[in-house]
Amino acid sequence: MNPIVDRLHIRQPQVSKHLRVLHEAGVVEYNTEANSSHLQATIGAFQRIKFLDGTIS
């Protein structure tokens, strides 16, 4: 999460809140390995966004 905080220049609690919302919406998923977590975009979420945008029929 620190790279996101550093790049966006916002506080860690704000990043956590937004990532939680994205996770609950199914846009990102957490992959936990050892003592760290990695975020990954969910492919299906982007397909739904494109469908709603009209770029996929």
Rank of each mutant, 00 (worst) to 15 (best):
Lys17Leu: 10
Glu33Cys: 06
Tyr30Ala: 05
His23Ser: 11
Lys50Ile: 05
Ile43His: 13
His18Gly: 01
Gly54Lys: 07
Asp53Arg: 08
Gln40Arg: 15
Ala41Met: 05
His18Arg: 12
Val5Gly: 00
Met1Phe: 13
Val28Met: 04
Phe51Lys: 12
Leu52Gln: 13
Arg7Cys: 05
Gly26Thr: 12
Gly44Cys: 01
Ala45Tyr: 05
Tyr30Gly: 01
Lys50Asp: 12
His38Gly: 02
Arg11Phe: 06
Ala25Arg: 14
Tyr30Lys: 13
Arg11Val: 04
His9Met: 06
Gln47Thr: 15
Gly26Ala: 03
Leu39Gln: 04
Ser16Cys: 04
Arg7Thr: 08
Arg48Trp: 04
Leu39Asp: 00
Ile10Ala: 01
Gln47Leu: 13
Ala34Met: 06
Ala45Cys: 06
Pro3Val: 14
Leu22Pro: 01
Leu52Trp: 09
His18Leu: 11
His9Leu: 10
Ile4Glu: 00
Ser16Val: 04
Ala34Glu: 08
Asn35Asp: 15
Pro13Lys: 08
Leu52Tyr: 12
Leu8Lys: 08
Thr55Tyr: 03
Val28Asn: 03
His18Asp: 15
Ile10Cys: 05
Gly44Lys: 01
Ser36Lys: 12
Gln40Lys: 13
Ser36Met: 13
Leu39Phe: 09
Ile56Gly: 01
Gln14Leu: 11
Leu39Met: 15
Thr42Phe: 01
Pro13Trp: 10
Glu33Ala: 11
His9Cys: 07
Ile56Met: 12
Asp53Leu: 02
Tyr30Asp: 04
Ile56Glu: 09
Thr42Ile: 08
Ile49Asn: 00
Ile4Arg: 00
Ser37Lys: 15
Asn2Trp: 08
Arg11Lys: 12
Val28Trp: 02
Asn31Met: 07
Leu39Trp: 09
Arg20Asn: 13
Phe46Arg: 01
Val28Leu: 10
Leu22Cys: 04
Leu8Thr: 07
Gln47Met: 08
Ser57Lys: 14
Thr55Met: 02
Lys17Asn: 11
Lys17Cys: 08
Leu39His: 02
Val15Asp: 04
Leu8Gln: 10
Met1Gln: 07
Ile43Cys: 01
